[in-house]
Each structure stands twice: as structure tokens, then as C-alpha cells.
């Protein structure tokens, strides 16, 4: 029931953007900017680049407003654009060398601070090293598998939506996810047992 309402609402907003309504674009942006940036960040693992690519995604959304037809769910369409932008970026090798280092020299410390808890240094180190392992492992996945897992896990998209976003068949999505999770299980399953 939620999905139907969202579908109609986002598509309706997009149709209004097509008709020249800026307010509707701002609403779409406010709602989807977070998920898109987070998806791109997990794909590329560099916040500044992810935001730059997200700008590209929303620019494309805006540019294609005239031809927009609400045939698919808006989020699916949006993530098709986002996947496209991310996969192109990776394919062109632009992501080489800009993954933020995990131990860091301090330049990105501020954004990472978690103010609500005050863990001990040891807890913090364990948490950091586990997070580093998660990030490394996700990064080691082939780009398309990575995109499928991220949409499946974090955007909670179903196979059909992921298939539409990645422009492949549902059975191809199943196979992508299966292989990806196999790798993740092999490399990450020990984490929960530790600490």
C-alpha cells in the first residue's frame, strides 16, 4: 500500500517537474538525495566523488524531465541512472586511487565522529577495523555485483526493480546477488563471531 502511494507521488512530482514546477524538483531532491548519495558512496567509497556523481544523477533526472514517462517506479528509474553513472565511472577507471584511506591522516575525521556513544579506544579500534573490512570486501566485489547487493540490502529493492535498474533479467540479478553474497559470507561471516 505504501509502495503504491510512493509510486504515484514521486511520479506525479516528476510530471510536475516536466511541466516546469521547481518546487516539485526540490521535493524529489530532498527525498532521494540521501539514498542516491549513500548508494554512490558505497559504490565508490569516496564521499566527495559520490556527491559529485550524485549531482550528475540529478542533473540527468532534470534534463530528462521532458521525456519522462511514469512507466516504471520513480526510484527504479532513478537508480537506473545512478547505477549507470556509477558503473561508467568505475569502468572508466576514474575511481582508481581516490578511495579514502581507512586509517587516515585526519582529514576526514570530523564526519566520522559518532558523538552519541563514547566507546573505549579498544572498542573504537575494533569497530574501525571491522568497518574497514566490510568496506574492503564490498569494494572487492565486481561492480555489477556490488551495485546489486547495495540496492538489495540498503535500498530494499526487489529482484524486478534491481533488474530494471541494471537493465538485465531477473535471473541475472539472482545470479549476481548469489555470487556476491557467497563472497561476502566467505569474507565477512567471521566478523560477527569476533568481538
Amino acid at each position: 500500500m505504501m509502495a503504491v502511494a510512493t509510486f504515484e507521488h514521486d511520479a506525479e512530482l516528476m510530471l510536475r517537474v516536466r511541466d516546469g514546477d521547481a518546487q516539485s524538483f526540490s521535493l524529489l531532491l530532498a527525498k532521494h538525495r540521501g539514498p542516491v548519495i549513500h548508494f554512490l558512496y558505497r559504490m565508490i567509497q569516496n564521499q566527495a566523488v559520490a556527491e559529485e556523481l550524485a549531482q550528475e544523477v540529478f542533473l540527468r533526472v532534470y534534463r530528462s524531465r521532458a521525456s519522462y514517462e511514469p512507466t516504471a517506479k520513480f526510484t527504479t528509474w532513478l537508480f537506473r541512472i545512478a547505477s549507470h553513472v556509477a558503473l561508467n565511472h568505475i569502468r572508466d577507471g576514474k575511481h582508481e586511487r581516490h578511495q579514502e584511506s581507512l586509517d587516515g591522516e585526519g582529514t576526514e575525521g570530523i564526519g566520522r565522529q559518532v558523538a552519541s556513544r563514547a566507546p573505549t579506544v579498544e572498542q573504537e579500534m575494533v569497530r574501525e577495523s571491522r568497518l574497514a573490512e566490510v568496506r574492503r570486501t564490498v569494494e572487492s566485489l565486481p561492480a555489477k555485483q556490488r551495485a546489486a547487493v547495495l540496492m538489495h540490502k540498503y535500498q530494499e529493492m526487489d529482484y524486478a526493480q534491481i533488474a530494471a535498474a541494471l537493465e538485465c533479467s531477473e535471473s541475472a540479478v539472482k545470479s549476481l546477488l548469489f555470487r556476491a553474497y557467497e563472497t561476502l559470507r566467505a569474507k565477512l561471516a567471521h566478523l560477527a563471531g569476533r568481538g
Partner: peptide, 26 residues
Amino acid sequence: PEGKRLEGRRALTMLQGLDPEARKRV
């Protein structure tokens, strides 16, 4: 470049807190 400004701002905040010697090193 737009994509580097965020990192630039963070780097600047960090560099401010350093003495000239450390700044040069970093």
C-alpha cells in the same frame, strides 16, 4: 574543482591546527 572543495575544506580545518613545520610535513 568542485569535487575537491569538500576535502579542501576539511584539509584546511586540519591544517589550521598545525604549526608550520607539521603543516609542511602533512
